Amino acid sequence: MNLALQDYLKIHDVELESEDITLIPLEGEGKVLDRVEILYQNLINSKKWRNALHEADLVLVATHSQGTPTSTILTARLIQEGILRVGETDPKMQRVGILAMAGISHGPFPFLKGNLIVRWFEAEAAQELFEFMDSETEISQRFREALRIVLKSGIRFTAVASLEDQVVPLYSAVMTAIHHPSIVRAVYIDGASYQDDFLTNLISFSLRLRNSGMDDHGVLVHLSEVVAGSIYGEGHSTIYEEREVYMLAIRALLEPPASLTSEMARSEPILHPFRAKQHLNPFYLPWGMRGVMDELKALGVGVLNEEMERLKKLYDDWNPATKGMKEIKFRLEPVRSKL
């Protein structure tokens, strides 16, 4: 994040001295609330860190996986205690942004629950992550309340999924059940895996819909499992090695769209209930796509309708190789004439 910030500032002919940036690497293992307490104590017990955080003009939080609910709850606590200054009446109001990479906001893939590797690896903390699959559990409620505080405070939240993540579904990393104009959603695709095909563009298009304030009608949920990476892969980790992911969060914070008014940025988030399912109904995907197309047609959004036309051509040219992707193409066959 530090390197990305310096790169961003150089683009704008700004160069900071090393003492102008304070790095606060918070570390601590365990379950989410245990980690929150450890990180909080580490922070406030350092006078240098605490003062730097309180006096900063710009605060950037970079977090990964389980760190997403952990950092969100910690940030909400810092807001409530006045350590972060985000009130509109504060003459030194800070700009604050959170970057959540492969965040486990709606839990891991449901099929991992009985996986021996997961059960063995950090058993207690790992098992807690499955509680995020249900928005009604106690830890999910704590996370959602923290999200409400953070988003209502005007903090910009950038949620980036990893396309071939073997642990966190796409829908979980981009917080599909949470609606707020201050959330920016994106997907990281490793260069070796990138293909400019129908599926990649459909995912990108669905994220653009969400960033425009529209609904993707469950499309992201129903595409998540088919793009899951191998349990032995590295998709869950490679995301935090890509500097452009950090640059996106910085741009999202410092270059907000003109349409994002202060009132919108501090509005109440919509927190839909969510419960991950082990098996999804295959008929939902074509209906979801139909819902997207009907909404676009009704709204008459020119740019997005043009993108739908491009998707139609990509669909015709798409020749998926894997069983899962062939199934996706088959499910979308009934709506191809509407694409």
Rank of each mutant, 00 (worst) to 15 (best):
A4C: 03
I11M: 10
I11P: 05
H12M: 13
V14A: 14
E15N: 08
T22Y: 02
T22V: 14
L23S: 10
P25Y: 04
L26I: 06
I38R: 01
L39I: 00
Y40N: 08
N42L: 03
N42K: 11
I44K: 04
K48W: 13
K48V: 15
W49Q: 07
W49K: 10
A52R: 13
A52Q: 11
E55R: 09
A56M: 08
A56W: 03
L58S: 11
V59M: 04
L60I: 05
A62G: 13
T63C: 07
S65I: 01
S65M: 04
T68K: 01
I73F: 04
I73H: 08
L78N: 03
L78F: 06
L78S: 07
I83W: 11
V86T: 15
T89E: 13
T89F: 13
D90K: 15
Q94R: 06
G97H: 15
G97Y: 13
L99K: 12
A100T: 03
M101I: 03
I104F: 06
G107H: 02
L112H: 01
K113F: 10
R119H: 12
W120E: 09
F121Q: 15
A125H: 09
E128N: 07
E128H: 07
E128T: 08
F130M: 09
D134Q: 04
E138G: 10
E138H: 11
F143H: 11
F143K: 01
V150H: 04
L151F: 03
S153Y: 05
R156F: 04
F157E: 02
T158G: 00
A159H: 07
V160G: 00
S162G: 11
S162C: 03
E164S: 14
P169T: 11
V174S: 03
T176A: 02
H179N: 09
P181G: 01
S182K: 01
Y188F: 08
I189E: 00
A192M: 06
A192R: 15
Q195C: 03
D197Q: 01
L202M: 07
I203A: 00
R208N: 13
M214S: 12
H217M: 12
V219A: 08
V221S: 02
V221Q: 11
E225N: 15
V227L: 07
V227T: 14
S230K: 08
G233I: 06
G235P: 12
S237M: 08
Y240T: 04
E241Q: 03
E241S: 04
R243W: 03
R243N: 05
A252G: 12
P256Q: 14
E263V: 14
M264F: 13
S267I: 06
I270T: 15
I270Q: 11
L271M: 12
H272R: 14
N281S: 12
Y284N: 12
R290L: 10
V292A: 09
M293P: 00
E295H: 05
L296C: 10
L296A: 07
K297L: 14
A298P: 01
V301N: 09
V301L: 05
G302I: 13
G302C: 01
E307V: 00
E307I: 00
R310H: 04
K313E: 09
Y315P: 07
T322G: 06
K326Y: 00
K326L: 08
L332M: 05
V335P: 05
